[in-house]
Computed example of a mutant assay.
Amino acid sequence: MTLTAEERRARILEAVGELGTVRVVHLAERLGLAAVTVRRDIAALADNGLLNRSHGAVSLPRGAATPASTGREWVIGMLVPTAGSYFDEIIAGARAAASAAGARLVLGIAPYGAAEDRAQVGQLLESGVDGLLVTPNWTPDGPSGVGSWISELPLPTVLVERRAPADSVGAGLDSVASDHGHGVMLALRHLAGLGHGAVMLTARQDTWTAYQVRAGYTEGVRLLGLEPRPVIDIEHPGQDSEAIGARIAEGVAEGARAVLVHNDKEAIQLVPVLRARGLRVPEDVAVISYDDVFAALAAPPLTAVAPPKRAVGAAALELLLRRLGSGDERLPVHHLELLPELKIRTSCGGSG
């Protein structure tokens, strides 16, 4: 049976934990794998701080611990605001990285707006986790000091798809997030390259990502010299399609023939509403969706900004394991931002 990359890397870590320093060729022979495949997996593990490489041999980082060397597995608690759509992929990335490292993931969910973050984290702590991946229910305009309790948690903690304000105590926490400003710029630059001098934005206003998308739009329009347009608010997600379609139709009549929509669900619902108003996609209005969870399934398939969701989950888990395993207080705080991609499909016209 063919092993997945996660399974191969888990076996590599287990073997290195048992053998100590070992040459790559001997490790490949022990595992019955091609040397080129083992080298590729070792490079990925080393990039994430889980292995050291030196002169054709590999070893665990100083002070690192694995199930093979400790007789136990790291148990990682993960708090997310939802287990659906966008966060499904983040969870999947963290879960695969945990499996590759011989760790176990325990999930907690604190729904948007439910103010259950602390209670859910408390439950994870009581379950005996060794470290935490936390996506708190923050918005940039929230009250000052919100979430400061996270910096006081007794275990290593990594923020996922969140960044604490620079003037807060939480700024000293590790974080891994998508650079949504870059993602919006990709969309705006693509539309500008297709000849659009004005691009509308319709976006939610109840999530962290929505605020980042809005801020990225304001900055991107300024940098690209596009005509600024008022943001079309999605006040009731999933229920405002008719009203939003009317606003977009007004914008098209005023010469703005392109729109960025946050998120996929809203964009997919908008397409038939626009069609009912005589606006064809992409002939009359170009549409780009933000999130790329379901965008490829739309009719027509939607060009979409795709944050690196799985990679965010994996990088956050690997960073936390690195901090747990190194035992080195000198390891600096990491603020990692991963760049989204633009997936070109048919809803804009033109090509990538």
Rank of each mutant, 00 (worst) to 15 (best):
E242F: 08
A256R: 05
A192H: 13
L223S: 12
P237S: 11
A246R: 14
V259L: 10
G255T: 11
R204C: 00
A243S: 09
V221I: 15
D284K: 01
R247H: 13
T202E: 04
R214Y: 05
R214T: 14
T218H: 14
L260I: 15
K265M: 05
L274S: 01
A295Y: 12
I232M: 15
E250C: 00
Q205H: 15
V231K: 06
E250K: 10
L279N: 03
G193M: 03
T209Q: 11
L201R: 05
K265I: 06
M200H: 06
E235C: 05
G251V: 03
A215E: 15
V293S: 08
D291P: 08
P230G: 06
R280P: 00
A249S: 14
P272W: 13
V285I: 13
P272M: 08
Y290M: 12
V231E: 13
L274H: 00
R247E: 15
E219T: 13
A198M: 11
V261M: 00
A215M: 09
R277Y: 02
R204V: 04
H236Q: 14
Y217M: 04
E250G: 04
D284I: 04
H236K: 08
A246K: 09
D240V: 07
T207W: 01
P237F: 10
I268P: 12
I248A: 05
E227H: 12
G255N: 11
G225Y: 01
Q212S: 12
D206I: 03
A246M: 04
L223V: 14
L201G: 03
G278Q: 04
V281T: 09
R277I: 01
G238D: 07
R277F: 02
W208T: 00
G197S: 14
Q269Y: 03
K265S: 06
Y211M: 03
D233P: 10
Q205F: 05
L226Y: 00
E242V: 14
A249Y: 10
V271I: 15
E266K: 08
I232Q: 12
R275T: 13
E235R: 14
A215Y: 02
V285S: 01
I234N: 05
A210P: 00
V293G: 03
R277D: 01
G278F: 01
R280K: 05
L274I: 00
G238K: 07
G238T: 05
A243T: 08
G193C: 10
G245P: 02
L224K: 09
G245A: 15
N263F: 05
A258G: 06
Y290V: 14
V273G: 02
L274C: 00
I248C: 10
A215I: 02
L279H: 02
D264K: 07
D291L: 07
P228H: 02
Q239Y: 13
V261N: 02
A256F: 01
G216W: 07
P282A: 05
E235V: 13
V252R: 14
G251F: 10
R277G: 03
G225V: 02
D264Y: 11
V231P: 03
E227R: 14
V273N: 01
G195L: 10
R204T: 12
D206G: 02
A192G: 11
Q212E: 15
G255D: 09
L274E: 02
E283R: 12
R204Q: 11
A210K: 01
H262G: 06
I288T: 06
E266V: 11
A276Y: 04
G197F: 06
V199C: 13
I268F: 12
V231N: 01
